[in-house]
C-alpha cells in the first residue's frame, strides 16, 4: 500500500512542469471566493466568518445580501422540521436539547407556512402510503428520464432532505464494500421507497446494479445498466456502471 503511494510522482507544480503548466496550476491553486461570497456562504450555514485582512469587493453588496437572505432561507426548513419533530417527540431528548438551546433568531423568522412545508423526511406519513409507492415499480421508474432528475434546490426542502438521503446512499455503499450485496439491495429499496424522486436516484441505481452483479444477477444488472447509460451518460457514473455490467463503453 505504501509502495503504491510512494510510486506517485512528485506534484507537477514542484517538479518537472513547463513554465506554462506551472502558471496554470498556480493560478488554479490561488483562486479564492470573493469576500462577499465567503461571507454569504458563512451566513447561510449560520456561522460567523470574516476574511482576515480581506478587502471588500463592494460592487455588489445589495445582491450579495439578497442572495444571502435567500440562501439562509434554506436553513428554515431544517429548523421548522426540528420544531415539528420536537413537538411530536415531546419528552424525547431532542426536545430537551431544543429547550436548552432554542434557535431563536432563525425560528422567530419562520413564516407560518414553513412548518407546513417541513421536509417530508421528518414529518410526512409513511412512504408506503404515497401514490408512487402504491404503483408496482418498474425498471423504467427506477431510471427516470434525464429531465426527471430533480434539480438541486434553493427551493427550501431540497437541502434539508439531502442529509438523510446521503446517509442511505452511504449505508448502501458501505454494505457493498463490506461484501453484503443483499443488505445493499435492501437499503436501495428503502431509499427508492422513501424518496421516489430522490436526488441521488442515479447513485442508488448504480449501487443496485453493482449489487446485482455481485449477486450474480447479471441479466438484471445489464438491463438496468443499459437504461442507466441512456438516462445518465455520458458521465463518470455511467462509465462506471457500464464497466460493472460489462457493457460497451457509453
Amino acid at each position: 500500500m505504501s509502495k503504491q503511494q510512494t510510486d506517485l510522482p512528485e506534484r507537477l507544480r514542484t517538479m518537472g512542469a513547463t513554465s506554462l503548466e506551472q502558471r496554470l496550476l498556480e493560478a488554479a491553486g490561488r483562486e479564492r471566493p470573493s469576500r462577499e461570497l465567503s461571507e454569504r456562504m458563512a451566513q447561510a450555514i449560520g456561522v460567523s466568518f470574516s476574511v482576515p485582512g480581506g478587502t471588500s469587493g463592494g460592487a455588489n453588496t445589495g445582491t450579495a445580501t439578497g442572495t444571502a437572505a435567500k440562501a439562509s432561507s434554506t436553513l428554515v426548513p431544517w429548523l421548522s422540521a426540528a420544531v415539528v419533530a420536537a413537538c411530536f417527540a415531546a419528552g424525547a431528548y431532542v426536545v430537551t436539547r431544543a429547550a436548552v438551546k432554542p434557535a431563536a433568531p432563525l425560528s422567530t423568522a419562520l413564516p407560518a407556512q414553513s412548518a407546513a412545508s417541513a421536509p417530508s423526511a421528518l414529518v410526512s406519513p409513511a412512504p408506503a402510503s404515497t401514490p408512487a409507492e402504491a404503483r408496482s415499480p418498474s425498471a423504467a421508474e427506477e431510471l427516470p428520464a434525464r429531465s426527471a432528475v430533480p434539480q438541486r434546490g434553493r427551493r427550501g426542502t431540497a437541502g434539508a432532505e439531502l442529509a438523510p438521503q446521503i446517509a442511505l446512499v452511504d449505508a448502501a455503499r458501505s454494505a457493498l464494500s463490506a461484501g453484503n450485496a443483499a443488505r445493499a439491495l435492501s437499503i436501495v429499496r428503502d431509499y427508492q421507497s422513501q424518496y421516489p424522486s430522490g436526488t441521488f436516484r442515479p447513485e442508488v441505481a448504480a449501487v443496485k446494479i453493482e449489487a446485482l452483479v455481485k449477486l450474480g444477477r447479471t441479466a438484471e444488472a445489464r438491463t438496468l445498466a443499459e437504461r442507466f447509460v441512456v438516462a445518465y451518460g455520458p458521465s463518470p457514473l455511467a462509465e462506471r456502471v457500464a464497466r460493472l455490467a460489462q457493457l460497451a463503453e457509453p
Binding site: 426540528a82 419533530a85 420536537a86 431532542v94 421528518l122 446517509a167
Partner: peptide, 14 residues
C-alpha cells in the same frame, strides 16, 4: 418512523 439519521439531523439543527 424517524430513522436514527433523522433524529441525528434534528439534533444537529439545535
Amino acid at each position: 418512523r424517524m430513522s436514527e439519521t433523522e433524529v441525528t439531523r434534528a439534533q444537529a439543527v439545535v
